[in-house]
Design a protein around this nucleic acid. Structure first.
Lengths: 156, 156
DNA sequence: TATTGTTATACTCTATAACTATA
DNA sequence: TATAGTTATAGAGTATAACAATA
């Protein structure tokens, strides 16, 4: 099965012809390698991957219970409890009992946690922004269009 | 800083305008989420992430020593030694002494390891291929062009 | 009784330090 | 001596099972 129309669109005239199978393979590898490379930028952070991911979830979703967070992060409550202990001890997350339901605890991001999330997010964006600045406007346009398509792929 | 020329290219006319900063952030997130989603397809595999990654490296690079593999995978020799032990015990990798240098061991992928790598690779490709098949030819062309740009970003 | 969170315990993966065999 | 690999041991992160507190 061929992929491209006889005359390729103007946005990327030099792209080689690929079958869907070839495109799937090449695109998947390029996506995975780039994601891995971006994630390496996190290594400078003092938090582990799981800790930063949990902190980011509380930041993104707002105050939430331990169970909700453990479900969101796909780990068991005891595992998340340990992760949260580390975040609380580091002063990045606040753990408070719920007023309505005494069994629950409410987790919120502290100002220090907020600052760490923002600083890390900025550093990761910077890494890729520095490279995107070197691209041509046409290449940036391709990435912008690809971004929307990738969201579609992820959600479908 | 604006990103798009006054008249957007034909390949993706509906893409919204973004600054480089916005594009960097959106693209990074879309890339990371898609990679994570693809990686979830691996969960059906009986190997851990590190084990499959090491197996894939030996498959990709051919017979190699333990040190070379540990450097390639960015882990210490003792850590890789344990990973390799698991792969050898599972019959996926063969460990043999080097003829030239008695200190070295040469790791090779067994036929069973080869089959596992190919089967897993096919399954992951299939997941994304199924979704790429639903795209328009223009969208596929964008992904093809984006693939080349993403390689450039990773390597630069 | 059911739910929420925590503690006890174990297993895996990673690391550093120390050891063995070979160059 | 230096290098390649292995073993010993420890720390971090995950899990299941058992427990405590509350609804």
């Amino acid at each position: 099965m061929t992929l491209l129309p006889p005359t390729p669109p103007a946005a990327a005239p030099h792209t080689k012809r690929r079958t869907v199978a070839e495109l799937s393979h090449d695109f998947r590898l390029a996506n995975g390698r780039l994601a891995r490379r971006v994630r390496q930028e996190q290594a400078e952070n003092e938090l582990t991957g799981g800790q930063f991911s949990a902190l980011g979830a509380v930041f993104r979703l707002g105050p939430m219970t331990l169970s909700a967070l453990s479900e969101e992060e796909r780990v068991t409550p005891p595992s998340m409890n340990r992760t949260v202990n580390a975040l609380v001890q580091a002063g990045l997350v606040d753990r408070a009992g719920s007023a309505e339901d005494g069994r629950k605890v409410i987790l919120t991001v502290t100002p220090a946690g907020l600052a760490l999330v923002k600083e890390t997010r900025r550093r990761r964006d910077d890494w890729i922004a520095k490279r995107i600045l070197r691209l041509t406007p046409e290449q940036r346009q391709v990435l912008a269009a690809a971004t929307d398509i990738m969201k579609e792929l992820t959600d479908s």
